[in-house]
Design a protein around this nucleic acid. Sequence first.
RNA 1: GCGCCAGUAGCUCAGCUGGAUAGAGCAACGGAUUUCUAAUCCGUGGGUCGGGGGUUCAAAUCCCUCCUGGCGUACCA
Length: 564
Amino acid sequence: MVINELKQKIKDYAGGLAGIKSNLNNLTVEEPKNEKFGDLSTNAAMVLAPILNKNPFEIASKIEKELISGWDQIKDVNIVKPGFVNFNLKDGFIKENLKNIIEYKEKFGSNRSGEGVRVQLEYVSSNPTGNLHVGHGRWGALGDSLANIYAANGYEVFREYYVNDYGTQADKFSDCAKCIYLGHSGRITSYPENGYPEESVSLAVDRLISEHNGRFIVEKSGIKEVETGPFKKEIIRMMVSYICETLELMGVRYDRWFYESWLYENSNLEKLITDLKNKDMVYEKDGALWFKVSRYADDKDRVVIRKDGSPSYFASDILYLMDKIKRGYDKLVYVLGADHHGYVDRLKSIGKAMGLAEDRLEIIIGQMVKIVDRGKTLKMSRRKGKLYPLRDLIEEVGKDAVRYFFSMNSFDTPMDFDVSLAKQKSNQNPVYYVQYAHARIESILEKIKESGPGDIESGSCSLDKIDTSKIEFKSRSERQLAKIMILYPDIIYNSCRSNAPYLVTQYLYRLATGFHYFYNNFRVVNDDGDRAAVDEDRFVLILLVRQVLRNALKLLGVSAPQKM
RNA sequence: GCGCCAGUAGCUCAGCUGGAUAGAGCAACGGAUUUCUAAUCCGUGGGUCGGGGGUUCAAAUCCCUCCUGGCGUACCA
């Protein structure tokens, strides 16, 4: 990492001046907004000024003299107005860093900051009582990309989907499905009141019929009935398989599908209750058993066992979290929609009650997706349906556009998803812009292969045997392209630290811009003479760009096409 | 009512551990192609950073207050 390493050096130095106790968290090393200020810039002097009670300009020149001017990575330093220290990197340093792309290839950009840490991510976990809608796509994309990013930072990653197959909602779903299922076998019954939308229930029923036909029908004194227990289990399995397929269509996969009902096996609940009673964490009131969560973070206590003796969903929350802890993950990440933000305190309370260190539990609350179609907002409603199904979107827009689109914003931003716009396959969708850069490179390489000039050894477009230190930057834009590439590892590190896949997306756009500009202004293959001549410096450069594009696209689950 | 999130260009969004002229994309307008894919490139216009107050050498960024929108506030899951 270029920036993060320089930053550490500066921070160490600043720490020496200011004393270790000083807060230097807002010390930054970053690319200045305006590139005329140089490659990189630090505000160190201005951060130190109040601590040392000195003029920032004075400190800046001290930093320049004592620290930065001695670095062999730096070509020149200059100090500007309030006390910015701006500097340029040596070309040689950039070239040296380019070597890493060749050395690490598809691993370029990765780091080991998370080595030895087992992190579990749970995302989507939509109830298996209906199909996924467009909003769920955001959590799928976010969760999967985050998982990839954590892995690229050296973490050991586990991806999990929690299936709510236990409790009254699952029963209700099963009842709805039963009605439709019986209808297929000729017996008409009335559809449950306030049942789930028939279209989405039918998805599971159709699947069940095609797999098992009428296997769950039993005749009782001439009347067709359904074996409720096995039917429920199977119909939910069908819905889950549909959900799983939908997510796979957008490249979202899991290591484990965890069923809520598992939590109630082996009398786990009884053990939990005894345990909670022994620890004095519960009390009885109005015939129900309450958990004293209000003593931790939640605003009020929650029911664990209802007065009818059945466990509440909160009981599942506890059991599930305990199960995760028991499985030995060092860090638990929940990706939840804003409609679940009431969970945060509840989950944190459980964590605290279970003695889980606060930093081991990370809850990401993503803001909602507002679905807009031709200027009209489609109202989101969890129970009532009439939402835009995720599957339709993937089929209409394509996996790549869906993944890219959902990775463009910070999860903190409520998002408007214009379905009609997304359906248009036009340059309005920036994914094509980025993919086009890759396809253009492929196209150049194809041309080189075809013309088979003698000056590229073996003609194969491989990264091996390239010495980047011999590259010459013939223009500003070539150097700029190289500089963007060597900053990639910093992006991967930062995107992990702030759970922000969109930083990768923004980076990709920037790299693609750099390439497109380069492409429009310079040629890699010149065939105006008798035979094609390949510019080797540029040939190397585009090979490197291709590699970095691929690496970043892969993290987002977007393909890198050969042709477009 | 209380809680969480948000309000930045016509639209969709970055920037918000305070810093250098508030940035991108799309849309609008004007250019570039006998040359490796024009799904590209270059240029122009476009802003009371929701309103008001405060802290500071410096505020889109921090504090207070008000307005607007989304979500939540179950012995549903």
